[in-house]
Amino acid sequence: MKKSSLTYYISYILWLLLFVILPLVLLLLQALTNQQGNFTLDNFLNYLSSGTYLRMTLNSIFYAFLITLITLIISYPMAYFLTQLKNHQFWMLLVILPTWINLLLKAYAFIGLLSQNGTINSTLSFFGIVPYQLLFTNESFLLVSSYIEIPFMILPIYNSLIEIDSNLIQASQDLGANTWQTIKNVIFPLSLNGVRTGIQVVFIPSLSLFMITRLIGGNRVITLGTAIEEHFLTTQNWHMGSTIGVVLVIAMLVTTYFTREGNKKGRKK
């Protein structure tokens, strides 16, 4: 009876096969073949022996790390203070609202804000500071990327903080801890799962942001994502593009592994 009922679910099964499994297989196949369609490991050897690719990868990881760190530093206190508010669910909605606005529009706003004779520079010159190249710098890339990722970091941290039993906080105070000691010893350790999820959902996309490197970073920062886009849509070298894609997938799996839940503490019994 169960076997025959599989036909009811055929649309979903087809989706799993055609759009989840097949594309990944095709990506891997592309990475393992050359222009002539023959099996080869050359793409990977090429990648590993090229200083440019390796430097680009390290660079991309470094910037993703910075973006994650910046968003974490801004988001954790934000999430904490949000949980202290009375109608925190409403305020949380206001945090999420900007994520519903297309990322391109937000990037577009920053072009206006940061450009040579844009608002920030005019404000600066009003105070007698010489206009400064803000757009197309590494800092502008970091700024805009962090801006875009902040709500995605706040949300999981907020969720884990809200789950903490307020009685534990009371117990900590009862035992003589002040607010800061309670945050350090009880609240932060118990919100680590949220922090891990936040790192995961910010770090991986930060490796692959390509429109922001182009629009805001002025191609000064090349991420793995930029490189893939370049190989697929500009130089049309899909094999190399897929190879970098596989690297990105591996980076993603490694990140997921290190930020998985239950990786509670190093202590063994």
């Binding site: 989840v20 893939i228 990105l248 997921t256």
Partner: peptide, 27 residues
């Protein structure tokens, strides 16, 4: 198992989804 397969496209970076779909449609 099905649930984790289901989540693959949720956690994959956009670029990977875009690139692999492009290969799929071309193939």
């Amino acid at each position: 198992r099905i649930l984790s397969l289901n989540s693959v496209l949720l956690v994959s970076p956009d670029v990977i989804i875009g690139a692999s779909f492009l290969i799929l449609f071309t193939v």
